[in-house]
Design a protein around this nucleic acid. Sequence first.
DNA 1: TTCGTAGTAAGGCGATTGTCAAACTTAGAA
DNA 2: TTCTAAGTTTGACAATCGCCTTACTACGAA
Lengths: 125, 125
Amino acid sequence: MTAPSAARELAHPAREGIRLEAVLHALSDPLRLGLVRDLDAAQSELSCSHFDLPVTKSTTTHHFRVLRESGVVRQVYRGTAKMNVLRRDDLDALFPGLLDSILAAARAQEDRRAADCRPPRARQG
Amino acid sequence: MTAPSAARELAHPAREGIRLEAVLHALSDPLRLGLVRDLDAAQSELSCSHFDLPVTKSTTTHHFRVLRESGVVRQVYRGTAKMNVLRRDDLDALFPGLLDSILAAARAQEDRRAADCRPPRARQG
DNA sequence: TTCGTAGTAAGGCGATTGTCAAACTTAGAA
DNA sequence: TTCTAAGTTTGACAATCGCCTTACTACGAA
């Protein structure tokens, strides 16, 4: 007899409440940066359980909360799942180009890492 | 009788050793982000003592070391002073557009903050 | 109603962070 | 040589972080 799903609202900062320092801090953790990369690539909302992370469920909850409270993602409950989307519109409005250049930087770094571990004959295959 | 100033070399990561996560972490501190903004605006090297910071000398040393060890600034001794420059070339080569978009974001945030505290009649002056 | 899956909350643990005070070093000026 | 300004080092402190375990809640399916 509770209001339908009103009990499971999640607190998000308003667009104007999003702080650059908090965003940079949220993205400075490798695991969280990976989540954001995946969310960006997916172009759709993903549940927390979609990700196969090397940490426990409660640590996963912690990381998603950091992303939500810093304004990087928006989270909503959908049945028993909690769905996550990048707050691209808000971030682009506040900090034009920031998210894209960070994601591009992450890709560039990943590409260099892959190139360094290139197998001996890879160049000629 | 030591080699002239060889004793005061500072360790810096090579360009390839600069990690995105470390850069984002370094810039996620408001005081350090401010230092980087000033260094960018100055377009020249600045000594540590040039900055008027609300912390002690040893805390200042700490913050500049974080910036140096993450690859954001390059530091050299010049007499008794320690000069700082942004490693713009290295950062731009590794992460094109990243530094500029972070600096632009910092400026945008600052501008909004200033606009929010705008005095009553400012619009019409 | 019972059960399983998704996620939360509380608490603890070791490492890191931002800060300081105090004592020290280094280089240039008097 | 002495003094001073700039920066370092050490050690401390409280706060935060990333992580875990254990116990819990919320929802949907059987």
